[in-house]
Amino acid sequence: MITISDVKKIYQSKAGPISAVDGVNLSVKEGEIFGVIGYSGAGKSTLIRMLNGLEVPTEGTINVGGQAVSTIKGKKLREARQSIGMIFQHFNLLWSRTVIDNIQFPLEIAGVPKKERVNRANELLTLVGLEGRGDAYPAQLSGGQKQRVGIARALANNPRVLLCDEATSALDPQTTDSILDLLVDINKRLGLTIVLITHEMHVIKKICHRVAVMENGKVAELGDVLEVFRNPQQQVTKRFVKEVSQDQDSDEVIEQLIKEYPTGKVLKFTFVGDSTGQPLITSLIRKFDLEVNILQGQISQTQKGAYGTLFVHLDGEESQLKEALTFAESQLVKVEVMAG
């Protein structure tokens, strides 16, 4: 569906050339929700803008749905963009037009007859959960409702690809989740390929199938979301994963747990997929002569299964502790010794 090959984007400045994207190679499958995450300046915004021709690569090629958007121009590029919808962080709505007129706008530009435009806009109002708000103006809507209008407008031309440029960054957490749920629903109903960029790992965790982690214009890490959570390789990825999987176990909390349990071992168990449903603690208690204390933990859901962390304290004979660790690892649980 989308192929990015050896893409570079270099901007010229008074201080010299600035490399925003540096040799990126990516592919996105049809019907996939693909996330690109990175901190400010990582190059993710430049990358997504090149997917619909708003920016042209300095080197390399970009193919979206069979169209070489990195090289085509004029009428061919405009036609290609009709199959690529885009939603933005700050909505980019026309404030002087009603909701239904905003949704119709791409169809108006494309020369679609008015009756057909109105019918399509009403269908989309229902799809995004805004029935009855067609005559409202953007200023009368909440942030989440504005973004729903932006999504409906992006879908007006029946695109094959939907690009999301920090689409939830201006929203509160509850509204963010409702918009993400809507994107998942659209992906499933329409088979739409979605590419989103974000600096929030919660967004990746909640809806993406695969993720590319960008740093300094390069792809630092790439893989299935569950695998990236289970075994992050790069330091930047570990920082992102920690934001959502270890929000309860900051360094201070871990240090306090270690102080409270000076003997035995403080362990961190990481569960992925089917392993989250295993009765590991019950098995440890039954199989080994150990004291087992659950300290804290949490389980999160991703599009490809559950991901969880659990901190426990085990105390007992050293031989029993070693056997218990070996047993835990045999249950496809990642084990980290935090102390002891």
Rank of each mutant, 00 (worst) to 15 (best):
G38S: 04
L94R: 02
F91H: 13
D101M: 10
I84E: 00
D101K: 14
H90F: 13
D101E: 15
I37E: 03
I72N: 00
R120W: 07
G53W: 10
V56P: 00
N63I: 15
T61W: 01
L94V: 14
I109H: 00
S83N: 15
L54C: 08
T71D: 09
F105H: 15
E55S: 06
I62A: 10
E59T: 14
Y39T: 14
R49T: 04
T126V: 05
K115H: 10
S45V: 07
G43L: 12
G43M: 05
I62L: 08
H90S: 11
A110G: 00
L54R: 12
V99R: 05
S45Q: 06
L51N: 03
G60N: 09
G43P: 07
T61E: 08
N122G: 01
I87T: 08
N102D: 04
Q89C: 05
L130W: 04
V112K: 06
G38T: 02
V128G: 12
R97K: 15
T61F: 05
I62F: 12
F88V: 12
M86E: 01
L127S: 00
L130Y: 09
Y39R: 15
R78K: 14
V99C: 03
N63W: 06
G85Q: 03
R81F: 14
V36G: 09
L130E: 11
R117H: 11
R117D: 01
L47A: 11
G41S: 08
F105V: 09
A121M: 06
K114N: 10
Q89G: 14
V56Y: 10
I87L: 03
R120L: 08
R78V: 09
A121W: 11
L77R: 03
L124K: 04
Q67S: 15
K44C: 07
V112H: 00
V69H: 00
E116Y: 11
G53L: 08
E123L: 09
S45T: 13
A121I: 06
F105A: 15
I87P: 06
A110W: 08
N63A: 05
N92K: 03
Y39M: 14
F88A: 10
L51H: 10
P106T: 05
W95A: 06
Q89F: 08
I100C: 03
V56E: 12
A80Y: 10
A121K: 06
E79L: 12
L130P: 12
G85S: 11
Q82C: 05
A121C: 07
G53P: 12
L124P: 13
N63D: 05
N63C: 07
P57R: 01
V69I: 14
V118H: 01
I62D: 04
Q67L: 03
I109L: 10
K44Q: 11
L51K: 05
T58I: 04
Q104S: 10
M86S: 12
K75Q: 15
Q104V: 06
